[in-house]
Design a protein around this nucleic acid. Structure first.
Lengths: 146, 146
DNA sequence: GCTTGTTGGTTACAAAAGCAACTTTTACCA
DNA sequence: TGGTAAAAGTTGCTTTTGTAACCAACAAGC
């Protein structure tokens, strides 16, 4: 055999933890609003950081632009999001939350906060701090503090 | 807006970290052996934990059985894996690594070990210990120490 | 002005994942 | 012993993702 352990191999471990922890939350936005993860992310970025274009979300969330494009279409279909032209550059479309989208966002942020509290409930505050810090470094958030 | 921060929300953070950290490694098994992540995982389980059936891998890796089924087919195609009948239960097929598969496994374990060392290079050993421990708990590895 | 390159975004096609139905074999139990 | 349920795997179909090509608008250089 070998003594290499999958259960301490970071890419695997992170992936399993990510899958496990997002299960409960993804069920909520899926069941309650028929959204996909990509849609939730776009919704979130608009709700949290204000109006922006697809490519800004692209850069912030490190999602591919085709995913964004499709997520935006779906959110427009649901009347959660609308786009308006940028005055200066007719290629750019500035995206905004519509009232429906804002309501969904507010609702889901509440769910997310509770979910996050539950997840970290059995972690000490010291552990939590180290965990978040390490994860942010691994995710590269320290390099791109956009 | 809202003061909820995506960059500390565990499901998101874990997902970004997982994506970021697995990028380099997945390129290796993809380019070098034309494997998918599912195939690497099956290969790994057989190489590390010895011969087993699809459903055992299923349970250990928490992967859906159709993914395993297809990954096994692909690995058989590559002559990395072969299945033999279990004597006692003709439904079960016990999977084994073939020499080619063993070589690929050995090679990839080396790559994985180096990759993991690189990833944790800027973490103190204390941080690393807390990180691994928290992730294992979040992934549920403490509950199913199979 | 023209031409070349770049950026924002969409679309078409191929690969992969998810889900449900199905086959075969085994286990249980009245 | 027969009948129902459950487990191991596979297959077909749908949804989602990935990739590359593409269009339109802008920018820069000459």
């Amino acid at each position: 055999m070998s003594d290499f352990d999958l259960r301490t191999f970071l890419p695997y471990l992170l992936n399993q933890a990510a899958e496990e922890t997002s299960l409960g939350f993804s069920r909520v936005y899926k069941d309650r609003y028929g959204m996909l993860r990509t849609e939730w992310r776009v919704l979130f970025h608009l709700g949290r950081y204000g109006d922006m274009t697809a490519s800004e979300i692209c850069r912030l969330a490190k999602m591919h632009k085709t995913k964004i494009s499709r997520a935006v279409s779906a959110l427009e279909e649901k009347r959660f999001v609308a786009g308006r032209e940028s005055g200066t550059d007719r290629r750019r479309e500035i995206l905004t939350l519509l009232p429906q989208g804002r309501r969904a966002f507010d609702d889901l942020v509440g769910v997310a906060e509770r979910h996050d509290r539950d997840l970290t409930a059995n972690l000490s505050s010291g552990e939590r701090a180290v965990l978040i810090d390490c994860l942010q470094r691994l995710a590269g958030f320290d390099k791109f503090p956009d």
